Amino acid sequence: MTDTIITCALTGAGDTVRKSPYVPVSPEQIARSAVEAANAGAAVVHIHVRDLDTGQGSREVALYRETVRRIRDSGVDVVVNLTAGMGGDLVIDQEDPLKPVDGTDLVNGLERLPHVEELLPDICTMDCGSLNFGEGSQLYVSTPDMLRAGARRIQELGVKPELEIFDTGQLWFATKLIEEGLIDPPPLFQLCMGIPYGAPADTGLLHAMVGMLPDHAQWASFAIGRDQMRWVAQSAVLGGHVRVGLEDNLYLAKGVKAGNGQLVERAARIVHDVGGTVATPDRARALLGLKEVGDA
């Protein structure tokens, strides 16, 4: 087995703040949680930010700026992965489908990147297609034109895109981006399982999706909720990397709410138990083709 990179998705943008006291909201809390995850074995931290008053997900550049500054000033070595998926939410009015309603936050592909342009993280995410996002009338919108424009700009910035794959058609399209030269090698895929209504958390489907990946790709996968830890084992055994964190799951065990550090510790133990080695941040940089700390 190769070294396994553990990513910790620290907070996400979902309505989870009221469900657990451990979900970080402020830049100080998110940065503290990043340090906690890194000390527990996470080589990468995946970062959303939240509105300080409502706790809801935000695209405010100042919040990203403060969060990243605090992480970098902490002295703890960790690879920074910023979401670039915010700005894709469309909620449809059933009576007038052309009239967006509360909850809509929809901008073009380039308008989802100002924090990436300013802060130049090691990695940023690209959600590689549109999706019926759960029940009701919410869509996540990410069209081929949006994705090509975003991929081109991310490439110009020298940031590694993490190709977020929520279903097999998105994987198909991501391989086209690679063929078109818009993704520098090695490509990095994140196979996102169990999010209604994308790819279900089915082990047979995970095997099939891994089989669809291009040669020399780096990949990880995760599943949400109670499937999170068994997906760590599935991914590691198949030779992939893993993701845990409060964005995807709030519990360490039934009825036991977790912090990010505890989830990373559990993931690291699973990786070791199946015969793997947990990658350091520098090893993660080497595997993903990122710059080493101190490189120009």
Rank of each mutant, 00 (worst) to 15 (best):
M1Q: 01
D3V: 03
I5K: 03
I6L: 11
A9I: 05
G12F: 14
A13N: 12
V17W: 07
R18W: 10
K19Q: 14
S20P: 00
V23L: 08
S26H: 12
P27N: 10
P27R: 04
E28S: 09
Q29E: 11
V35H: 01
V35W: 10
A37C: 07
A38V: 13
G41W: 07
A42Y: 01
H48W: 11
V49T: 14
D51W: 10
D53W: 15
G55C: 14
G57D: 05
G57I: 13
R59W: 08
Y64P: 06
T67K: 10
I71F: 02
D73I: 03
V76G: 10
V80K: 03
L90C: 12
V91N: 15
L98V: 15
K99F: 07
D105E: 15
E111I: 13
E111S: 14
R112S: 09
R112E: 07
R112W: 11
P114A: 10
V116P: 06
L119Y: 07
D122P: 03
D122E: 08
I123P: 04
M126W: 01
M126S: 02
S130A: 08
N132Q: 10
N132C: 03
E135K: 15
G136Q: 05
G136K: 02
S137F: 14
T143Y: 05
M146K: 06
L147A: 00
A149G: 12
A151Y: 06
R153F: 13
R153L: 14
Q155I: 03
L157A: 06
L157E: 01
V159G: 07
K160M: 04
E164L: 09
E164R: 13
I165R: 08
I165P: 08
F166D: 06
F166V: 04
T168A: 15
G169E: 02
G169W: 13
Q170N: 14
F173L: 00
A174Q: 04
I178S: 05
E179W: 01
E179A: 15
E180Y: 09
I183R: 07
D184V: 11
F189K: 12
Q190E: 15
P196R: 14
A199L: 13
G204L: 13
G204W: 12
L205Y: 06
H207W: 01
M212C: 11
P214V: 08
A217P: 04
A217T: 03
W219D: 01
F222T: 12
G225I: 03
D227T: 02
M229S: 05
W231N: 01
W231C: 13
Q234G: 09
G240Y: 09
V242N: 05
L246K: 12
K257C: 15
A258Y: 00
G259D: 11
G261K: 05
Q262F: 04
Q262M: 14
V264C: 03
V264P: 04
V264A: 07
H272W: 06
D273L: 08
V274I: 00
T277H: 08
T277S: 02
T280A: 00
D282N: 04
R283M: 07
A284Q: 09
A284M: 02
G289H: 07
K291I: 02
V293E: 03
D295I: 00
